[in-house]
């Protein structure tokens, strides 16, 4: 019994770390959805691009500048964030501007096409290899009472919490944050009140790419770096729907809960029930369909009245 409990709590802890990645991706498209009502299917690919840029910078900095250790990671991280800002501005120009007032179907397909393009471009530029991203924290493991957590996981959870707190303060206290809230409530009224709506949209896309890039950089050392890590972005959709699509706390809780469900089903449940092993890959999607059938608004969502 105690073994089972230890196993379960171990899985919960790793699930939270995985869930924080989902939460960061989900946070990115929740921001975009809230402000512009565009559902960004390319969020996972933004994460992948961020991870690749960071990897590229790390290897360049150590090879060309001869800087190693903590500074190498720090400079690469900053470089990747700078890239994310520029990339966000480009995406705003390419996706957001031309697709205003288009039907949902076109917008979804446009973001999917962007995700296909990004994956193909990265695969062409970086080559069809799988890279291994080293972690600034090495392979260190902290253990409490038989439960082991890698330092990387601790850092992931820490970063996610810090980011969420920063966003919360930004939305509640700063001028731009309030402007964003106003824009997401009613863009026309916001514009009439003198809020530069276009700039707000640009800022939203920058934030979304920033969050995705941070998520990608955090995720890369946990898994191997190849173009398939973009698919994790797809799994963030069940997370967001579980929490309530369009709700920021929903994105975070949904992500964490989904991460825990996934690790537990891959671990303890698969060990005890053979048939669970068969459906491990699709657990997030089963959760998604179950949530959509039972309570489409998720845990934190508010039922919306459809505008005619």
């Amino acid at each position: 019994m105690t073994e089972l409990l230890t196993g379960l709590s171990q899985e919960v802890v790793s699930g939270i770390a995985l869930g924080c990645i989902y939460a960061l991706v989900a946070l990115g498209f929740t921001l975009i959805y809230r402000a512009t009502e565009v559902v960004n299917f390319a969020q996972g690919e933004l994460m992948m691009v961020g991870a690749y840029v960071n990897f590229f910078l790390v290897s360049r900095i150590s090879a060309n500048l001869g800087i190693t250790g903590a500074w190498m990671y720090f400079i690469a991280f900053m470089g990747a964030l700078l890239f994310a800002i520029i990339f966000g501005i480009i995406l705003d120009l390419v996706i957001n501007r031309p697709l205003r007032d288009q039907p949902v179907f076109s917008v979804i397909m446009a973001t999917i096409s962007i995700s296909i393009i990004l994956r193909a471009l990265v695969a062409m530029i970086a080559g069809p290899f799988t890279h291994i991203q080293s972690s600034p924290f090495g392979d260190g493991v902290v253990s409490f009472n038989k439960i082991a957590i890698s330092v990387q996981d601790v850092f992931i959870i820490f970063c996610a919490i810090v980011l969420v707190i920063l966003f919360y303060i930004f939305f509640r206290k700063s001028r731009w944050g309030v402007a964003m809230q106003a824009t997401s409530a009613d863009p026309t009224a916001a514009q009439l009140m003198g809020i530069p709506v276009k700039k707000v949209y640009r800022l939203v896309w920058i934030f979304a790419t920033l969050v995705a890039t941070v998520g990608g950089i955090l995720l890369a050392p946990k898994t191997l770096l190849d173009t398939n890590i973009g698919f994790i972005g797809l799994k963030a959709f069940p997370a967001a729907v579980l929490g309530g699509f369009g709700s920021v706390p929903g994105a975070i809780f949904g992500g964490v809960i989904l991460g825990i469900i996934e690790t537990i089903s891959a671990g303890t449940l698969s060990y005890h029930f053979a048939w669970i092993k068969e459906i491990n890959d699709v657990i997030p999607w089963l959760v998604l369909i179950a949530v959509l059938m039972v309570k489409p608004d998720g845990i934190f969502g508010i039922a919306k009245v459809k505008k005619v």
Binding site: L99, I112, A120
Partner: peptide
């Protein structure tokens, strides 16, 4: 990769 790049571009250009 070429195939998906071209398909992605075509879809995007057609939508816009």
């Amino acid at each position: 990769d070429i195939q998906s790049l071209i398909f992605g571009l075509i879809m995007f250009l057609f939508i816009i």
